[in-house]
Design a protein around this nucleic acid. Structure first.
Lengths: 164, 164
DNA sequence: GGCAGATAAATGCATTTGCATTCTATTCGG
DNA sequence: CCGAATAGAATGCAAATGCATTTATCTGCC
């Protein structure tokens, strides 16, 4: 390779025509992913001061909101894979954040709920979570926020048909 | 499930007052995350037929769009952690999808680019990616899509200040 | 020039993840 | 009712991940 070519910003091998097929800056999965990861990373850092991980917080937030749930319900609500969640719940149980209990009515299922300690911790975390969200939404009008919520719901619903 | 926990009577759940503090259904990080994960999961399934993972596709998409990049630039563009990306690039290099080359101007850095084979594969994948996006955005007007893009950019920018 | 400090990428290692499978319990068809 | 099929959760295991550190290079200052 000739000297002086290395490190140039744009390679000659990429015709402009190619690029036109696909504009990353207008590609929804990309925009969604990077916004989501950035928010997640920032909040993870805050959670680490409580010795918590983001998936733990997600479980706690869902249990706070919905009350006790079966593991399968939590899989759906948290978007965490089933085996991952099973182990996460075992560790959260070990730390006294949640309690697991076989369901009397259907002993295949396990009911998960926040312990009082878990609830207290969640109560502490909620203001931090809302502050994070507030920063992310700086400069948004209430109408914009509503519209955004609605669109994210629609995307979630639309994307359901992409699964199997 | 550890033995001895079944049937324990745990007083149930959630005073209504608690719930009011925090409405998950209007919590941006939650809505963002679940929409993103669902789209990602769906596209991962398509990619598996090409023996590719989603992070590989992200790298390919960024290189397609931006042309050759340093590893550090790819970290930023793909939101993939540096050590993870370093290993991912090694594996993509081994499979002939990308080429890595020490930068002549600054030998600390490594320039990454799509190989011709990587470019061909990317060209094949783009229509699939756009079809996925199209499904997710079914029923959206062009104005809504524009507004969504803009808001996701703003969130990404706003969230930057959360990362000290 | 030479060294202290900074920057880029790679690597060691423990943890997390996810697919495939297993184990237990329930439901359904005869 | 009984056995096969199904459903829910846990687990084995290999792969992916991320933090902390290392290795290599560069930059600025004297």
């Amino acid at each position: 390779m000739p000297a002086g070519k290395e490190g140039r910003a744009v390679p000659s091998s990429q015709p402009d025509a190619d690029k036109g097929l696909f504009d990353l800056k207008r590609f929804l999965p990309y925009l969604l992913n990077r916004a989501g990861i950035r928010l997640a990373t920032a909040f993870s850092a805050e959670l680490s001061r409580f010795d918590l991980t983001l998936p733990m917080w997600r479980v706690m937030a869902v249990l706070w909101h919905h009350g006790e749930q079966r593991v399968t319900d939590l899989v759906i609500e948290t978007t965490i894979e089933q085996s991952t969640l099973s182990r996460l719940l075992a560790s959260m149980d070990g730390r006294g954040l949640v309690a697991r209990q076989r369901n009397q009515r259907d002993a295949r299922t396990v009911i998960v709920r926040l312990t009082p300690a878990g609830r207290d911790l969640t109560r502490q975390l909620i203001p931090l979570a809302l502050r994070n969200e507030g920063t992310a939404l700086q400069g948004f009008s209430p109408q914009e926020i509503d519209a955004l919520h609605t669109m994210l719901f629609r995307i979630f619903d639309n994307a359901a048909e992409l699964l199997d």
